[in-house]
Design a protein around this nucleic acid. Sequence first.
DNA 1: TAATCATATTAGTGAATACTGATATGAAAT
DNA 2: ATTTCATATCAGTATTCACTAATATGATTA
Lengths: 106, 106
Amino acid sequence: MEQNYLDVKAKFIRGFSDKTRLQILECIKNEEKTVSQIVEELQGNQSNISQHLACLKGCGIIVGRQEGKYIYYSLRNEKIREMLELFDEVLNQVQTEIAQCDSHLY
Amino acid sequence: MEQNYLDVKAKFIRGFSDKTRLQILECIKNEEKTVSQIVEELQGNQSNISQHLACLKGCGIIVGRQEGKYIYYSLRNEKIREMLELFDEVLNQVQTEIAQCDSHLY
DNA sequence: TAATCATATTAGTGAATACTGATATGAAAT
DNA sequence: ATTTCATATCAGTATTCACTAATATGATTA
């Protein structure tokens, strides 16, 4: 396993590891949206959202398509959607396991 | 989508988003290992590795099992292994797409 | 019981990252 | 051509995070 590959992989995954970015991804999960739509839906700061979009784009997680003065962002591909779903699945399973484990303490 | 859930989800994913932690996960992917085995294989600092193990454990990604003075760490379950594999799969696909896209510039 | 070994925790530091407000770019409308 | 609108970028600050060295805990061995 190359040292460098793990750096790239870590950076890629870090794209998903922030609340605001997860909100953005949820927001555009099913349909492309413009920056202003996203800003409004998340009640966020334009600059902040824009920077997170740049991050997600840089990680290869989303793509942007310009149409006039608007830029529409969407998930890069189906695999990304699968990832998002697997996150939920795995997290739920883990939380269930932990909950069961906790209950043994009583 | 609850605000709080996204925080938990982000924290969970952040567990995977560091090179050292990815190295640890690779290291114990196929068999449980003790802390000292991991430290040696990664040529790492004991304190540092220990803190990363605590992080991974706190995220619910790995579990530890004590046997005498040793603690054996392993992936929590099969789903986690699946996640690791999906990361590679998706990242490779993204990189391929980006490479193809770049080639259009010439 | 004392010494040793494996692991965890703490404190301190530096680097990376998220956020905000202000400004810049570039496209569309007037 | 000027103004307006959508988005990006920049500069500064605060927070989070990874790392190291030192110390603590807790189990085993002598």
